[in-house]
Amino acid sequence: MEYIISQLINGICQGAIYALMAIGYSVVVGVTGMVTFTHGEVMMLGAFASYYVFLWAGNNLFLGIIASFAASWIVGMAVYKICYEHFFNAPRHISLICTVGFSMLLKNLAQILFGANRLPMLNIIENQVYSLGPVKINLLQIVILLVVFALAAVLSLFLNRTRAGIALRAVSQEKTAAYMVGINVRRVAMTGNCIGCGIGGVAGMLMAIYYQTCYATMGGTMSMKAFSSSVLGGMTDVRLSALGGLCIGIIENLGITFSSANFRDAFAFCFLILVLLIRPQGFAVKKGARP
């Protein structure tokens, strides 16, 4: 029983990271209207940025967050320029393949620049365990949850209370109409894409801290998780995507308690396929919300 509870906590914690990834992903998809395969690589680069910051500036989490956010923001700009801007009026599969190509490019470049080995990211946060009765939770998990909640709150404030945020939501709902009322759709799409990527970068950093390692090929599975989570949440809805991420994290961790950890990714995929079969719109109520 205790084992299951601790797995549940692991699941929630991991699910929180997935939620952050999914938030970033659904912001990107919503605002550009195109599905991306580069998100995993963007997250990976965020993780590497924080790795080097931790290496040079010590274990300063705040600096790490800023570095990963900034690095992913810049990559996001490149992604936007290369994969989206040119293809707004073209059939979707073209930009899709373009993002696949760009993700290959980033991954292989990262392998050359950072080496193919796993780099250790040890003890960024002290390993302290608190216990509340049978429930044990360590500091790392608390910090991750706090970071995720803080970021989600900031994003939610931005989207709902600021002019730019409202413009962003308008663009993600209806580009033509947004254009009509005088919103600079391209600039807003670019900003939104970069915000999504930046959030993804932070999620990548948290992932690296959680597994205490970062490596050039970590993007693939992360991108799948981000995608699964946001599909579960109905693709473009930020809040439901976060919920989806949480679900995937919990299911994965409960799943591996009953089998081997090697099947972790297989669980997530099978769950995704099941969801798509049974309820393709995910948690979203509205039908036809699919991009």
């Binding site: 290369i82 994969c83 930009s95 190509g101 760009f102 290959m104 490019l105």
Partner: peptide
């Protein structure tokens, strides 16, 4: 591999 990836993007453009 970087070349391939770049080639895909160039083709798409």
């Amino acid at each position: 591999f970087v070349m391939y990836a770049a080639l895909i993007i160039v083709m798409m453009w």
